[in-house]
Design a protein around this nucleic acid. Structure first.
Length: 479
RNA sequence: GGCCACGUGGCGGAGUGGUGACGCAGCGGACUGCAAAUCCGCGUACCCCGGUUCAAUUCCGGGCGUGGCCUCCA
């Protein structure tokens, strides 16, 4: 089984060769915890969950280390905290915001059917450490010592000119970036593209003792946290680094620059993977357009499509598009994903899963995570499950492997449908009456009863028992 | 302005230098008293214009459209 992944660094698909097959290491940029995670945040969570599962399948469950961070130090968090808890001291208010948001994030993504990562570090835990693991302050000291960073007005700045191939990931040169810059350059910067590693804090703001001999306490810049967490948990060089495509520049470019220059390595990660962007109903998702949609709203409210949606339906809908393609998030695609999962549930809910996922699905995923192709194969397996019990077992194992199915029944996926309360005994008795009428060839009465049941929201299905030829009537409640 | 993606049938969505993945919807048939459900079958789609080629949806160039990054936004 050969695994191929598209590498943003080289802009092509490459065979995946881990540094150490006994410990495959992946880092993915996680959320900044200041507000509900939105559906765009869900995409990398879902995509890299599938990759995590695939890697575990290929290399063994205990041979993959997956780190996804929580960013809990950020100016947006500070602003939100001051706004929401004006009466609390800022640091206390920040703790309220980050704790609440992190708890919400975990609840949201648990419903999606994703595995917890091996490590979920918080940025604040890696500013300064006393256990000899890499931390942000040490990285900054190293960068200054190696001549890649300088102190100016209580800031520490990364000197972009000190790194010959800066811009390689984003595929643009320093000259291009400087020419295109639309922001005012801070006067203390040596180069226009130099970025902040550490900045001074105002009184009352979160603050830590500064590195590089700076007297004023300060706080870290945006990119350094990931360098520290990845370095501490996965090592100076690791296998896969993932995130949304919008992070390529500046976040990943800068992160990679810091890590490489601090460690003196030629790469930070061998494979850089980026998921495509998401739109909502054909438009950019934004609060001003009123189409900003959170995972929580999708799961628990009727804001999108006038109904809530099952977490696994959300995940399955997301996997219907290849991870690098742009995706237009619509009600229609959720409806379709739900219908498919319902049909699969019918095939699979009563059988025991096979020992392993279907090899063809693994092969599809091994081609740069081709989930649409994998889903197509799923349909084929479901079809052959009509007359082959082994296929049903394989389908179940494969769906569970992907985390798009657990033990749900068809109806469980229809969380949005208002289940009209029906009296099962009454329904059964009406069905009995209808069948009696049919036997007596009183079709007028039989159809009247069927209409009556339909008015109650009960849909009948007549099927012939294969062995006895007897008509068996089943029913379900329709929304 | 600079850089970069994407544009496939009614819809969603893979893929490929030469026999139309797959799903939904639709159509036809079987079954049924009639339906529903189920099963079987059915589609000459690749934004436009040039070029390369025996052959292009697939490669190259140009255009148009949509979107992203260059603003701590996945």
């Amino acid at each position: 089984m050969s695994l191929t992944l598209y590498n943003t660094l080289t802009r092509r698909k490459e065979p995946f060769r881990p540094i150490d097959p006994a410990n495959v290491r992946m880092y993915v940029c996680g959320p900044t915890v200041y507000d509900y995670a939105h559906i765009g945040n869900a995409r990398p969570v879902i995509v890299f969950d599938v990759l995590f599962r695939l890697l575990r399948h290929v290399f063994g469950e205990t041979h993959v280390t997956y780190a996804r961070n929580i960013t809990d130090v950020d100016d947006k968090i500070n602003a939100r905290a001051a706004q929401e808890f004006p009466s609390l001291p800022l640091n206390e208010a920040i703790r309220q915001v980050t704790t609440k948001t992190e708890t919400q994030f975990h609840a949201d993504i648990a419903a999606l059917g994703v595995l917890p990562p091996t490590h979920e570090p918080r940025a604040t835990e890696f500013i300064r450490r006393d256990d000899n693991k890499v931390d942000m302050v040490r990285l900054i000291e190293d960068l200054v010592a190696r001549g890649h960073a300088y102190v100016a007005q209580d800031h520490v700045l990364f000197d972009v000119a000190s790194m010959p191939d800066y811009g390689r990931l984003a595929n643009r040169s320093l000259e291009e970036m400087e020419a295109g810059a639309r922001v005012d350059v801070a006067p203390y910067k040596r180069g226009a593209m130099d970025f902040v590693l550490w900045k001074p804090s105002k009184p009352g703001e979160p603050a830590w003792p500064s590195p590089a001999g700076i007297a004023t306490p300060g706080r870290p810049g945006w990119h350094i946290e990931c360098s520290a967490m990845a370095g501490a948990l996965l090592g100076d060089v690791f296998d896969i680094h993932g995130g949304g495509i919008d992070l390529v520049f500046p976040h990943h470019e800068n992160e990679l620059a810091q890590s490489r220059c601090a460690h003196g390595t030629a790469v930070m990660a061998n494979y850089w993977m980026h998921n495509g962007f998401l739109q909502v109903e054909g438009e950019k998702m934004s609060k001003s357009l009123g189409n900003f949609i959170t995972i929580h709203e999708l799961l628990e409210t009727k804001t999108f499509g006038q109904q809530p949606w099952h977490g696994r339906v959300i995940k399955f809908a997301m996997l219907g598009t290849h991870y690098r393609q742009p995706i237009d998030w619509t009600v229609g695609r959720l409806v379709q994903a739900r219908a498919t999962l319902m049909d699969f549930a019918d095939v699979v809910s009563a059988v025991s899963p096979a020992d392993a996922p279907h090899a063809d699905v693994i092969a599809a995923l091994s081609d740069d995570l081709n989930t649409p192709s994998a889903i197509s194969i799923l349909h084929g397996i479901a079809k052959s499950a009509q007359r082959n019990a082994e296929s049903a077992a394989q389908l179940k194992a494969t769906l569970q492997f992907l985390g798009v199915y657990g033990e749900e029944k068809r109806g469980d996926f229809a969380v949005g449908v208002e289940a009209r309360s029906v009296d099962a005994a009454q329904v059964e008795s009406l069905i009995g009456a209808r069948n009696a009428a049919r036997k007596a060839k009183d079709f007028k009465e039989a159809d009247r009863i069927r209409d009556e049941l339909a008015a109650m929201g009960v849909q009948l299905k007549d099927a012939k028992d294969k062995t006895t030829g007897e008509i068996v009537t089943t029913w379900e409640v329709k929304g």
